[in-house]
Design a protein around this nucleic acid. Structure first.
Lengths: 210, 210
DNA sequence: TGTACATCAGTGAACGCGCGTTCACTGATGTAC
DNA sequence: TGTACATCAGTGAACGCGCGTTCACTGATGTAC
């Protein structure tokens, strides 16, 4: 398709086309599937051409990783926005928290390749983005804001507020990873649903009482 | 070293020697570092010799994976046994739960290569061991037994018992993964200590109240 | 509007890498008689 | 105790693979005059 939009010798927007193809590879096979030569092939271009736009294969992978992270955040946000708020602000805060967690896990299970890519090593300097980077425009920020609202509404005493992001994140991330390629991979869909539900209950209860 | 114990043309115990070397590779570089040729090299043997004892590179990796899982369980068990019990059975149950979680995370952070190997794909049939397999001789069994004791002692109402293993496991696994190569990788040692502590508090509270 | 020329964005052949794996082989070991 | 022979456990050369990457190149584009 990017091939059909190509006009003549010059591609026009090869950088984006390559990321698109790499994205498709990642989506289907995770970060290991992001092969520079294959992305170029699919874009209808010689492998060398990629080096006009990316310094490295890692550079290309990193672009996909960024996009995958954005997609995760966008999915969570939109799922949150789509749901109906509750009148009680405390209940509403907890509902949001649970919805965020559910959306995170759902993304991980339905877009496994992208999820794994969002959390892969690219080996690039500045990779393993420090939390500081994540605070802006990320799942972390959304989560953080939700927790803040919960404190304001009186749902969580302020002295228990610190570091709740990490605890909440760990709970949902753990479930996602254990199901994706850990010991919970063999569960049936129904068992899986139950386990996810239970884990979310426990996580929310932990934030409420711990 | 395995080279020095070698007597003559026949090695004597090449299978174990290869796993030892592969183990050392995994310990230092994770599952990707388990290179059959390198393990053979280190064992002082031609690469081909490995095929007398393992059908595949995957087969060798799987042996290391098994051993890494056992090591994780052994570490958790011994750390649990080494700590002082509390008089109150409920408090003791929660103390054990927390100690197990702490040991799990500690193993993940100090033996990262082995931890990652314990949870890697080997692509072998029967890999991604179903939970059923794990119930015997595993971290899962230890956790399960601890939760059972907690129910018996009255620390958890029986109706809230189901699926707590997965929830607890997810919490500690999530923290470990996020720190090992996720967004929490850049924390200082002190921040890390605080985050782990907080996450354990929240997880235990969740199990107690959720 | 036309031309000269720098720059940009591609090409395609080639390399090195290190791996896993196969092959035909040979030296060592153990067992039957 | 000695010998024949099957079997076991190694050897070393070689292959194919597909990758990332470099190289010298050429076609297309845009700008100055």
């Amino acid at each position: 398709m990017s091939q059909t939009t190509r006009r003549g010798y010059h591609h026009g927007d090869l950088a984006n086309a390559l990321v698109d193809e790499a994205w498709a590879l990642a989506r289907q096979g995770g970060p290991e599937a992001v092969v520079l030569r294959e992305a170029a092939r699919r874009a209808g271009v010689s492998a060398t051409a990629a080096y006009r736009h990316f310094t490295d294969q890692r550079d290309l992978l990193h672009a996909v990783k960024d996009r995958a992270q954005e997609k995760l955040v966008a999915t969570m946000s939109s799922e949150l926005a789509a749901s109906a708020p509750l009148p009680d602000p405390v209940a509403e805060g907890y509902r949001q928290l649970r919805a965020l967690g559910a959306a995170y896990i759902d993304f991980a299970l339905t877009e496994t390749g992208l999820f794994r890519t969002a959390f892969c090593h690219t080996g690039r300097d500045g990779d393993d983005a420090p939390v500081a980077d994540l605070v802006e425009a990320s799942a972390y920020a959304t989560l953080s804001a939700t927790l803040d609202r919960l404190v304001e509404a009186g749902g969580i005493p302020p002295e228990r507020r610190p570091n709740l992001e990490a605890a909440a994140w760990a709970a949902v991330h753990g479930i996602a990873v254990l199901i994706i390629d850990g010991p919970l991979a063999r569960l049936t869909d129904e068992e899986r649903r139950v386990v996810i539900d239970r884990a979310l209950d426990v996580a929310v209860a932990g934030i409420a009482h711990g």
